[in-house]
Design a protein around this nucleic acid. Structure first.
Length: 354
DNA sequence: ACTTTGACTGTAGCATAGGA
DNA sequence: TCCTATGCTACAGTCAAAGT
């Protein structure tokens, strides 16, 4: 019992969870595809540290993290700039969308910087860190981060997962270099469409699973590595992954361009598409399956093209048109979505209302 | 030697009490 | 009645013990 989580699950929910788990056909690799963020230890000077340094340096001064201004003031050489990486927090990383414009940087020194000789080609960074040497507690001091992690995870396409989510699980798709602290986990895989996976993880169905089978801290989701690895992932065929990916593209573009601040409509459709993936026969029998209608709408509106290949104007048109269709109370999709609880009291209702 | 995670600390924002 | 002080809570961020 010692290392197992205890969960208290209502009887009707238990049955639904069994259905979800039975659908799982994909598992993330424990070390190759999921990792925690950087353990910086001293990001900015805190009160205790300032006292230790005889209050010669103000509280809040950057140590391993730097503001734009602090970074500029260091007058770094080109070589030194290679060590400075863009650092992101919850300010930039939201559900689905991450803003690539960062306001904080990290001096990304790995464990090789435990050897003081390694810092030689970086004199300005050395001078900066030397000012704080008395407060740096890193295993890799004087110049290395405590845990730099495998840099592979911070680069390119990946999903950033917020560890503590007060409202609902928060997964961010990013395609730019993105260095984060252990506030986050990083999921990076090429075995499944990562935009599809972002949609799935952000969905109501997975939130339901995490509430019951994951870890909670009061009302907050604590999405640790264990729960991430145990999420019952269903990997559909490429065609369906692409369908989800196109809807995610709409959300990302809308959030990026502030086209439509509220993308809740698209997110709800994704929630329902996920239901359809996990209990297709059940929904079809009750005439509340929606995937076929979503597919038809997307095909009509995008005329068989991929979202990413459209011009910005076309993208805007696509989003407006889909939004119109998916918020029209007379459309088949919306009618079906609104009748889930009534038509499926034994499966969908516990998820939606649980 | 490195990773995970429970528990701790700090703090923003809100509510309430108390004083002018 | 209004303003300020204080307390409370929820969330965010930090750290080091325990685990691998």
């Amino acid at each position: 019992m010692l290392n197992n989580r205890i969960s208290f699950v209502k009887a009707d929910s238990e049955q639904v969870l069994d259905v979800i788990i039975a659908k799982s056909n994909f598992t993330l690799y424990k070390t190759k595809e999921v990792a925690t963020g950087i353990d910086v230890h001293q990001d900015f000077l805190n009160k205790k540290g300032a006292t230790k340094l005889s209050n010669q340096i103000p509280i809040g001064a950057g140590i391993f993290n730097l503001s734009n201004e602090e970074k500029d003031n260091l007058d770094l050489t080109e070589k030194e700039t290679e060590l400075i990486k863009p650092f992101y927090s919850t300010n930039q990383l939201t559900r689905y969308f991450g803003n690539s414009i960062n306001d904080t940087w990290v001096i990304y020194t790995d464990s090789s910087f435990k050897n003081p000789l390694t810092i030689k080609p970086y004199p300005n960074i050395k001078r900066h860190l030397d000012r704080f040497s008395n407060v740096i507690t890193s295993d890799n001091k004087p110049y290395g981060l405590h845990r730099a992690r495998n840099e592979y995870f911070f680069k390119g396409e990946k999903i950033i997962s917020l560890r503590k989510c007060p409202q609902r699980p928060t997964f961010t798709f990013t395609d730019f270099d993105c260095y984060v602290s252990q506030t986050f986990f990083i999921i990076k895989t090429n075995r499944i469409n990562q935009k599809y996976l972002t949609a799935l993880f952000n969905s109501e169905l997975i939130a339901f699973w995490l509430r019951n089978k994951g870890k909670m801290q009061g009302k907050a989701y604590q999405v640790d590595k264990g729960p991430i690895l145990e999420i019952p992932i269903y990997k559909p065929d490429n065609h369906l992954q692409l369908l989800f990916s196109n809807v995610v593209d709409c959300i990302l573009f809308a959030k990026e361009t502030n086209l439509e601040k509220d993308t809740k409509n698209f997110e709800s459709v994704i929630d329902c598409m996920v239901f359809n993936l996990y209990v297709p026969d059940h929904m079809k029998k009750r005439k509340i399956d929606i995937l076929q209608f979503v597919e038809k709408d997307i095909e009509e509106v995008m005329q068989g093209k991929e979202f990413e290949t459209l011009t910005d104007t076309q993208k805007e048109q696509v989003i407006t048109e889909l939004h119109n269709r998916w918020s029209d109370p007379d459309s088949e999709i919306v009618k079906r979505m609104n009748s889930f609880s009534e038509k499926s009291p034994e499966i969908l209702k516990p998820i939606i209302e649980g």
